[in-house]
Amino acid sequence: MRECLITTKGLSREEIVEVLDHAEEIEKNPTAHYGSQSGKIIGLLFYEPSTRTRMSFEAAIKRLGGDSISMGPVENSSVAKGETLADTVRVVAGYVDAIVLRHPKEGAAKMASGFIDVPLINAGDGAGQHPTQTLLDLYTIRKSAKLDGLNIGVMGDLKYGRTVHSLAHAITKFDSQLNFISPKGLQLPDNVKYDLEKSGTEIYEYTELDDILSTLDILYVTRIQRERFPDEEEYRKVSGQYRINKKTLENAPKHLKIMHPLPRMEEISPEIDETKHAIYIEQAHNGVAVRMALLDLMLKS
């Protein structure tokens, strides 16, 4: 496994499969891995709020027998006094065996990794990437189907959605088709589209879910945020068109699986939770096994 995990762009299919296989092994026999990283400490630097990612990293390192230390809320830290990220990571790198970083600016993880010698994991950089989310997404997809030969739909805010960018790059390493469904103005950024096309992936873009729904195996839903719109009315109008309920799914294939990186707001109606389509809670649970696998592989080397 590589030293740092910054984006999924540079990950090979083999590296992805290595993590997924290890996660599967851990899930099958968790106690066998308890204690495998005892004595190791990871540093959690979260410059943006996070519940799931942070907690699942904490759970993962603790299950491996290690521990975590964290910066706490930004307001109470040296960051509030104006310390640069470069200085903070350099100092923290001396306390820990690996750093997990979430930061509101694109490229923060890449920059930080250049200043330190310990492994760094990008847990989200602005609208950039969120590669560990992608690994657990892929793990979830593989568990419910396979990774090749699928028709995958990704819907919502594709412009600012870092989970979408990471997922899209990763899917190009497999033989599945990507369909993007979003309002105009929230489509994939040109540079992401360029990279996907360059990797030989054909991109299909839609504004209406109905135009593609009946052919999908997986529908990955993301949140459309209020801040992306000039006014409340426009936001309500647009976001309302990208909501999933039982009625929306009338023409959906029976085997369709619906995913969401969570937290969800109103994108997926609670009435879907009970259906066979819903796998987003299981998806979130997979975060621990996948992050255990990743940490185990990274801390070993």
């Binding site: 640069t84 470069a86 930061h103 509101p104 920059m111 609208a127």
Partner: peptide, 10 residues
């Protein structure tokens, strides 16, 4: 919003 436009030594 790029990190290169923030006050960082890069």
């Amino acid at each position: 919003n790029c990190i290169t436009n923030a006050k960082e030594p890069i």
